[in-house]
C-alpha cells in the first residue's frame, strides 16, 4: 500500500495558493519561532516543557502549512508530532551543526506521508529555514509530499512507499554495530504500515543481529487511510507479536512528552534486544474535530477549521481526548 498525497477532499476550500496555483495572497504563514535545543544541564521538567511547547508550535505551523498548500496529511502529522518533537527536541544526538557527522544518531521516518510534520519539526530545530516551509508542495520546491534526503538537511531516507523505513534502520544499526559506534537508530513507523511484510523481515534480522541500538516507534493511532486497523487487518496483539520477534516492548502514551522522553532516552531496555515502542496516539490530536477521525487522513482544513484549530492550540490546556479506540 502506498500513502498518496492528495487533497481529494475539501478542495473547494483551497486558498489561492494551492498546488500549482498562484503564490498565497494571504498573510505570511511561516511564523514559527526556532526553538533549538536546551543545554545539556536542563532538568527533566525543563526538557518536557520545551518539547511540549515545540510540539504546540509545530502543530500551529503545520496546520497553516497544510491549509496554504491545499494538501497534506494533517491527521497522521498530528499523531506523530509529539514523537518527532521529543526526538529532535531532547533525544537525538543530531543538530543542524552535526547533520553530516557520521557519528550522529539517525532518525528514519518510515511513514513518509507525514513529511509536513517532519519538515516543520526540522525547521523548529533549525535544520532548515522556517520561511522555506512556505514552499511546501509548490512547483519545484525541495519540500515534496514525501521527504527527499538529497534536498532536505536532516532527512535520512527517501520514504513514501510503506514498509521501507524499518529495513533501512536495521541496515544503519548494523553499520553502527560493525563500526563499534555508540550512534543510535530510531525509526517511526505507522501502525497500518506494519501490514507490509518487509517490516517483519527486518524485525527478524534486527533480532538475529542483536541490534539493541535500534528503536522502532509505532505510531499506534489505529486508523489507516480509510478505516480502523481493526476493521482492515488487525495488528493486535501487537506487543506479543513484537516480543515474539525478539524485541523488548514498551507501551507509552504517544502524546505524553514526559513518557516519551523517559522511554526514548532510556533505550535499550534489554541488552542485545532492539526496542519496540508502541506509542498510543490519535490521528489529528488534540484538535477536537480531527482527533481520531478517519476523515482527516488527508483532509485539508478550510479557513474556519483552521481558525478553530488554532484557537484550540492556543489554549494552555488542550481539550481532553474524546473517545478512545
Amino acid at each position: 500500500m502506498t500513502a498518496l498525497t492528495g487533497a481529494t477532499s475539501a478542495s473547494e476550500d483551497r486558498p489561492a495558493g494551492g498546488v500549482g496555483g498562484r503564490p498565497p495572497t494571504s498573510i505570511q504563514h511561516t511564523t514559527m519561532p526556532v526553538l533549538g535545543r536546551l543545554s545539556p544541564y536542563a532538568t527533566r521538567d525543563e526538557l518536557v516543557a520545551h518539547v511540549a511547547e515545540a510540539a504546540r508550535q509545530i502543530r500551529i505551523q503545520d496546520l497553516k502549512l497544510v491549509h496554504h498548500a491545499g494538501a497534506g496529511h494533517i491527521g497522521g502529522d498530528f499523531s506523530a508530532i509529539d514523537v518527532l518533537a521529543t526526538l529532535y527536541g531532547a533525544v537525538l544526538n543530531v543538530t543542524p551543526e552535526t547533520v553530516d557527522d557520521p557519528e550522529r544518531d539517525r532518525f528514519f521516518l518510515s511513514k513518509g506521508h507525514v513529511a509536513g510534520a517532519l519538515y516543520t519539526t526540522l525547521a523548529a530545530f533549525g535544520f532548515l529555514p522556517v520561511e522555506q516551509l512556505a514552499t511546501f508542495l509548490k512547483p519545484l520546491s525541495k519540500l515534496n509530499g514525501h521527504p527527499n534526503r538529497n534536498y532536505v538537511p536532516g532527512v535520512e531516507a527517501n520514504t513514501g512507499p510503506l514498509g521501507h523505513g524499518l529495513p533501512i534502520a536495521v541496515g544503519h544499526a548494523l553499520s553502527a554495530k560493525l563500526d563499534v559506534s555508540r550512534r543510535r537508530t530510531y525509526v517511526l513507523v505507522g501502525d497500518g504500515e506494519l501490514q507490509e511484510g518487509s517490516n517483519w523481515e527486518a524485525m527478524m534480522a534486527a533480532s538475529q543481529h542483536e541490534l539493541d541500538s535500534l528503536t522502532v516507534i509505532v505510531d499506534r493511532n489505529r486508523l489507516q487511510q480509510g478505516a480502523t486497523t481493526r476493521e482492515t487487518n488487525d495488528l493486535d496483539p501487537l506487543d506479543q507479536k513484537a516480543a515474539a520477534f525478539g524485541f523488548a516492548v514498551v507501551e507509552v502514551n504517544g502524546h505524553d512528552h514526559g513518557e516519551l522522553l523517559d522511554v526514548l532516552s532510556a533505550v535499550p531496555f534489554r541488552p542485545g534486544k532492539p526496542t519496540f515502542v508502541i506509542a498510543h496516539t490519535h490521528k489529528g490530536h488534540p484538535i477536537s474535530f480531527m482527533s481520531n477521525n478517519v476523515a482527516w487522513h488527508h483532509k485539508v482544513p478550510n479557513a474556519d477549521q483552521l481558525t478553530l484549530a488554532l484557537e484550540e492550540l492556543s489554549l494552555d490546556q488542550p481539550q481532553e481526548e474524546g473517545s478512545d479506540a
Partner: peptide, 11 residues
C-alpha cells in the same frame, strides 16, 4: 533496505 541503511552508515 538493509543495504541502503548500511550505506547510510558509511558502508
Amino acid at each position: 533496505g538493509v543495504a541502503a541503511g548500511l550505506a547510510a552508515g558509511g558502508r
